[in-house]
Design a protein around this nucleic acid. Structure first.
Length: 557
DNA sequence: AAAATATGCCACC
DNA sequence: TGGTGGCCCTATTT
């Protein structure tokens, strides 16, 4: 029990609900800095390395002394297998393999530690050539649309404090999030296993998990524009589900694998999905490059699938323009984001192809005017096109940002703040960690897309996992994050404190792990009788001193 | 506490 | 193009 008390002392704002787990090892850990870092100065070792390691040295034979046998295991870098250096974490700081290009900007000649994009506040914008402003449409845009966009940027409100959380809510990692269109405290979450969670984070304890909708990962969810209770979901099982959140009843609107498993080469998966309410269609795209459409009123598919990306390549995302219903944006594994005219949907008939260097995880029109485009690419760059009416050959800005592909992680996607009328604030999780007072944490970055400035980096010492899934609330100053199997709700610090004065404190609920859940899977919804498991892994007792989201400076080591 | 494993999927040949 | 190998700051379990 003393451990629980001491944790509270360190982190007074967090109340652990249902703390049945009393064996939290009190945290004497960190800062032990066992300096065994394998750059040994010993002659023997140097020689050993020269000789290719793993050797036996026999000394002083001639002098008749007993032979000294020294066995050395060859120390090689786990990344490049070369001796002389080692890559990996040293404490909370990751040492790159010098033989590899920089893990952040991908340029050779330096490592991530010394990458110029790592330490600067503007995250390294790469300016592109000057825009062509002679375009007449651009002129119209500047006269008619631009005045609506306020010239002065609002002061950003950053939700930087964990307000509440459900730990290990899902049994597999979270893949997508969606806020309810009208109920402010309802968050939908999809996971790798195909389950969809409905969480009332206002009441914190109220949650529901639907496990019967999909058999594998949910890639996208959208509420019906005509009925708040109904949700469309696209899954790697090749189906679009249509679920009533009140009753849990679900129907399948589209099934791309009606004949079941015929091998990996033919199994279709659905990724990007969006709804065009003007046209009354649900759009979804598969991993073979095709776009599928479903009539939203009859719930029947309309027409044949259309090839919109390279044949056989995955379409990662779809986005309908919020202002111009004729405009559709897609992105995919063929390294392109494409702008489409809905009236002219046919192969190779896109209005524009936005070239990228790697897979494009996401592409979004800006939320209010629909005139900007934001993409997230696996080449560790966020790209912004400031006007779809201008010259689209090159992005207006490229922002170097750590959001690599990793098979174990849900792909990173930069998301607009839907409340920011200046259409500049974006949020995206960061892959690489920073050393925050001895703890490796992966922050969530708020970036001003208009200039590449890092506005804020938010993190919580209890969240040691990478947080690739983030969504900003459409109306409130709330950030929802999916990190591994857990969900987090962030609110601005000052507001949180106001709430705390009159109400209780932040609550973190913890549920049992997936194994335990297996025994009573049938009940699907409430597993509250499961044993709690409070931050059971490394994060629980980390000592991190006060940090400030807006002005955080990394502790360099 | 090191090692396995779950796994998808992208890059590359 | 299809097959194969990597897997270069994962998370979790054993």
């Amino acid at each position: 029990m003393s451990s629980a008390r001491s944790r509270r002392k360190r982190d007074p704002e967090i109340v652990i609900a249902r703390d049945t787990d009393s064996e939290l090892s009190s945290s004497e850990e960190e800062e032990e800095e066992e300096d065994n870092y394998p750059f040994s100065e010993s002659e023997e070792e140097d020689e050993a390395v020269k000789n290719g390691g793993k050797i036996e040295l026999e000394k002083n034979k001639a002098k008749g002394k007993a032979p000294i046998t020294v066995k050395l295991i060859k120390k090689v870098c786990k990344v490049c297998k070369q001796p002389g250096h080692e890559a990996g974490f040293k404490g909370a700081t990751y040492i790159d393999c010098p033989m590899k290009p920089c893990f952040l900007c991908k340029m050779p000649g330096h490592t991530t530690m010394s990458c110029p994009h790592r330490v600067v506040t503007d995250h390294g914008i790469l300016p592109t050539s000057h825009r062509n402003t002679k375009n007449p449409i651009d002129f119209v845009f500047k006269r008619q649309l631009q005045p609506r966009i306020p010239p002065i940027k609002p002061k950003y409100v950053i939700p930087d404090q964990v307000h509440c959380a459900v730990i290990r809510y899902h049994s597999r990692r979270v893949t997508c999030l969606e806020f309810h269109p009208t109920k402010n405290n309802i968050l939908l979450s999809g996971d790798k296993k195909g389950q969809i969670g409905v969480w009332d984070f206002g009441k914190v304890y109220e949650k529901n998990v639907y496990g019967n909708i999909h058999s594998v990962q949910v890639n996208n969810m959208r509420f019906s524009p005509t009925n708040d209770d109904m949700v469309y979901s696209a899954s790697s099982d090749g189906t679009i589900g249509y679920t009533d959140l009140e009753t849990g009843t679900s129907s399948t609107l589209l099934n791309l694998n009606p004949d079941g498993w015929q091998g990996a080469n033919s199994w279709k998966m659905l990724y990007g999905m969006d709804i065009n309410s003007e046209k009354g269609v649900v759009l979804a795209a598969d991993n073979f490059g095709f776009l599928h459409m479903i009539d939203h009123r009859t719930n029947n598919s309309t027409g044949e699938p259309i090839l919109i990306h390279k044949q056989g390549s995955k379409v990662c995302g779809l986005d309908c323009n919020p202002v111009q219903p004729e405009l559709l944006l897609s992105c995919g594994n063929d390294h392109f984001a494409r702008i489409w005219d809905m009236r002219k949907l046919q192969p190779k008939a896109s209005l524009h192809d936005l070239a990228h260097k790697r897979v494009v995880n996401s592409a979004y029109f800006s939320p209010s005017s629909g005139t900007k485009i934001l993409t997230t690419c696996q080449d560790n760059r966020i790209r912004i096109w400031d006007s779809i009416f201008g010259n689209l050959d090159l992005p207006s800005r490229e922002i170097v940002h750590s959001n690599d592909f990793n098979r174990h992680l849900t792909p990173f996607k930069a998301e607009w703040d839907p409340k920011d009328t200046s259409e500049s604030l974006i949020v995206i999780g960061r892959y690489i960690s920073e050393n925050y007072n001895g703890t490796a944490l992966h922050p969530i970055d708020f970036i001003d897309a208009s200039n590449g400035q890092l506005v804020a980096e938010v993190m919580d010492p209890n969240i040691t996992t990478i947080t690739p899934v983030n969504k900003l609330h459409p109306r409130d100053d709330v950030l929802a994050s999916g990190s591994s199997r857990s969900l987090f709700i962030w609110r601005p610090q000052d507001k949180t404190e106001m709430v705390e004065e009159k109400k209780d404190k932040k609550i973190i609920i913890c549920y049992g792990d997936s194994k335990k859940k297996g025994k009573k899977q049938k009940r699907g919804s409430d597993d509250e009788d499961d044993e709690d498991d409070i931050f059971s892994s490394k994060g629980k007792n980390i000592k991190v001193n006060k940090y400030q989201a807006k002005t955080t400076k990394k502790t360099k080591t």
